[in-house]
Amino acid sequence: MKKYNLDESFIYKFDNEKAIVTKSVNVFYGDHQSIFNVNLAFPRFSITALIGSSGSGKSTFLRSLNRMNDSIANVDGNIMYRDVDINDKKVNVYEVRKQIGMVFQRPNPFAKTIRDNITFALKKHGIKDKEELNERVESSLKEAALWDEVKDKLDKSALSLSGGQAQRLCIARTIAMKPDILLLDEPASALDPISTAKIEETLKNLKSKYTIIIVTHNMQQASRVSDYTAFFHSGHVLEFDKTAKIFTTPKIQATEDYISGNFG
């Protein structure tokens, strides 16, 4: 693998309103440091892609943003969300995760009905009203572009869905919580091209209401769906800019090598 200068980076500062800002974030698995001093500001109502080779720390960083690394890794630094440092141990993590939802690489619907997959967490968060629950089921499934396919079998097991449908159900389940930010960790990597295209369509429709941060190892995907792109390498963010800029005129050698396939 080629050696790149990890101190040389290009992080563009945008003037847009920010959804979430990380300040000097370092992440450690025990003694092993996996994320080094990441300072990123994610613009609101847009899609930011996190790209980089496998093991570069994309998932680790993403999971830090809604405290999914609690009890797995040590996250240092500040993560500012609505003027609150949500990395503070005193912050209510359950509230954080309601505001900042996450969808994982492998579809993980619960072994419950399609409806219950969506309402289960809502009920546990205190929503008891039937109308309200039904409304959330319908609107979230519509937003996730799954409604037409499942509206007649809401009370069937979610395990009967195809991989792509299951993943869109997971997206629906997350947006039914009415979050602010949506984190997706390679949400389409386990899916076929048609399902992938559907997920990408869904994401584009969602960005008018949510701030989306998506990890992907698929560069075409990043260029298709995202407005901004951050390039990760060995736990460092080497470049952050508009996606169009990253893919046409990258400022850093490593980024250029990565997107042109001359990496490593």
């Binding site: 999914m68 995760r97 993980n108 967490a121």
Partner: peptide, 22 residues
């Protein structure tokens, strides 16, 4: 599966609710 636990936690459920409900 570990994925089920992550799903529960990522929806803002406590560990206890994730265990008993999922």
């Amino acid at each position: 599966s570990h994925l089920q636990r992550e799903a529960g936690l990522s929806l803002g459920l406590s560990q206890w609710k994730t265990i008993t409900g999922i």
